[in-house]
Each structure stands twice: as C-alpha cells, then as structure tokens.
Design a protein around this nucleic acid. Structure first.
Length: 322
DNA sequence: ACCTGTCAAGTCTGG
DNA sequence: CCAGACTTGACAGGT
C-alpha cells in the first residue's frame, strides 16, 4: 500500500516563508486611529504576503514529492474579526487565491484546513455557535475561491464536554442540523487528546456520515481502558469509503513523559511503524499528516527512518510502499 | 540582535 | 466563582 506524508503550514527548511504572519487587532486599532486607510493597507499587505508564501510552500512540496499539505488557518489576518466588517477579502484576494487553487489542482496536492479550537459546533452558547459557523464559512470561502472541491476538507474536533459528554455529543448532532450543507460536506472530525476519544469520534462520524481523522498520538493520550487502535481502524477507514480519498491519520510524538500531550520536535518512527504494520493487513492506501515542531524537516526524517525498517520501500522523499 | 510579555476568539482546572 | 492554564507563532516594545 502507498503511504504519503505531509506537514502543517510552515516549513523548517524554507526560510522567510511564514504563511501565518499576523496583524493584532490592538495594532490595527492603533494604526487606524492615525490613518484608517493605512491600517487596512497593512492587513492587506500581510494577507498577500501569507498567500504568496503559501504558494512558495506548495512549490516546495511539489519539488520534494509532498502531496499532502495543511494551509495555515491564520492565512488572512483578522478575517472574521468583528472590528473589520465589510472587508471583502475574497474578492480582493481572488487572483492569488485562484493561483493557489490552480497549483493545488495541477499538482494533485491534498489540502486541508484545521480551524482553531475556538470553532465549536457543540457549544451550548448561541453566540459561540454563530461565531463558529462564521469561521467555518470563512475557511470554506477560501477553498471555494481557490475552486477546490469537497475533497479539500476542514478538520475539526467535536468540542467541549460542558460537564456532560453524552449531552454534549447530542448537542453536536442537534447543532449539526444547522450547519449549511456546503460547509457540512467539507467537515471531518478528529479525536482529541483530552475530551473525545477515537471511539466517541467514530461513533459521531458513523452517525452523521462524516470522514474521521485518526490522530494516533491523541489516541495514546486519551482512550478508554478497553479500547485498542486496531479495533477502531476498520470503522475509521470505512468513513472515507465514499469520499474518493485515502483515510488520513495524524502522527506526532510526546515532548516528554511529563509533558506527554505536547508535541516533540520529531516523530518516533517506531510508533508509526507499529501502526503501519497493523494497517498493512487492510491493504488500503493511507495519508499521514506529521504534526511536529520541526515541520517538514521532521516529516522527511520520519520517511527516512521508516525506510530503514523491514517491509518498507521508499517511493519518494515523502512517500513509501508498505 | 535578542529577550519578554502579549495577542480576537473558548473551555477546563484548581484554588 | 474567578484567575490562570492551555497552545502557538509572531508582534511590540524594550534593552
């Protein structure tokens, strides 16, 4: 089976290529006080820089055989901030957005966004829910402007427990019905490291017919005593069946025993290897997102480390056959 | 050039 | 019930 690897947002190898440069609202306000035009110009300049660097990062991916990439959610500074109403960044930035989309499509790169964890579909608060829908809408609008189809996904977590997980899982289902269709078609659910386990995430994915992203580090942090990843795996891969996409997992390693949930600079190849040997029985292609501090550098190292192990054949700098 | 505190957003925890 | 932690890259303001 073919296993492809990718990385998140920034590169540790490409210099001066941040796709997440920011303008803080505080700074925006300070500038706007003196010259409102200049404040807006700064936001636009930073947004254009982020889009330009994202294109550089995609070229870097293409040059190195990387077919999986996650856009930075901070690509447009202050995009959904209530203090900047009426900024039509989709129209304004249409050209660079289309350029990104063209590059992605031409090179068949699998793209995703991971909206921040302020985006909470199962919140009991209506204002938080509305802000979350606006944020999801924002991410969708960017993908639409790039003319990327529903295979470009938004990866989200289930949300908070709010003191009662069962109630809050039901709240998710209830609120799910209020998510606009064109957004819903892009959403995938990922198990988290503290609250919702892989088993609970799979339950919700099956119920709502959503693809599931399986994070194996989160699984190690947070799972039922009796739960094994090999029991989750068949159900997890089945959630991707109708999408035309390979199932996707996230990998990372604990920073330390004491700080187990935090991400290490690199990924321990043995833990990924163990998983791949289990997955091998299913003979299904797999996409692996590396979430490590050293970003693409950690991803290339992981592929190299795996290639030393039995039953692994390197295919490119960023993919292997198992 | 480098260091420290701060940043739009929500939720959970520990006191 | 409220302050602080959580997490992250990057800015702002200081030396």
């Amino acid at each position: 089976m073919l296993v492809r690897f990718g990385f998140v947002a920034m590169s540790a190898l490409l210099e001066q290529a941040s796709p997440s440069k920011a303008v803080t609202f505080k700074n925006y306000q300070q500038l706007a006080q003196q010259d409102p035009g200049a404040a807006m110009e700064k936001v636009k300049r930073v947004a254009k820089g982020n889009l330009f660097n994202t294109l550089r990062l995609l070229r870097h991916c293409q040059a190195n055989g990387v077919k999986l990439y996650r856009f930075s959610s901070k690509i447009i500074p202050l995009a959904t901030h209530p203090g900047l109403t009426g900024w039509d960044y989709i129209t304004e930035l249409n050209l660079p957005l289309q350029e990104l989309g063209d590059f992605v499509k031409h090179n068949k790169i699998r793209i995703a966004f991971h909206p921040d964890h302020f985006t909470l579909i199962n919140t009991p608060r209506e204002d938080v829910f509305q802000a979350s829908v606006a944020d999801l809408m924002h991410h969708c609008s960017l993908l639409n402007a790039m003319r990327l189809d529903d295979q470009a996904k938004l990866i989200t977590h289930i949300g908070g427990a709010y003191g009662n997980k069962e109630f809050s899982l039901n709240k998710y289902v209830e609120n799910w019905a209020r998510i606009p269709q064109h957004i819903a078609r892009r959403i995938t659910l990922e198990n988290d490291d503290k609250i919702y386990t892989a088993r609970e995430t799979l339950y919700l994915c099956q119920k709502l017919k959503l693809p599931m992203v399986l994070d194996i580090h989160h699984f190690a942090c947070n799972h039922e005593k009796v739960s094994h990843i090999e029991d989750i795996y068949p159900g997890f891969v089945a959630t991707w069946q109708e999408t035309g996409l390979p199932p996707k997992i996230h990998v990372s390693s604990p920073k330390s025993e004491a700080d187990f949930r935090a991400h290490h600079d690199y990924v321990d190849a043995n833990s990924v290897y163990k998983f791949l040997m289990m997955a091998r029985d299913f003979q299904l292609d797999l996409d692996v997102m590396v979430e490590a501090k050293q970003k693409d550098k950690a991803m290339f190292k992981l592929v190299q480390d795996l290639s030393q192990l039995p039953n692994i054949m390197p295919v490119s700098e960023a993919s292997i056959k198992v």
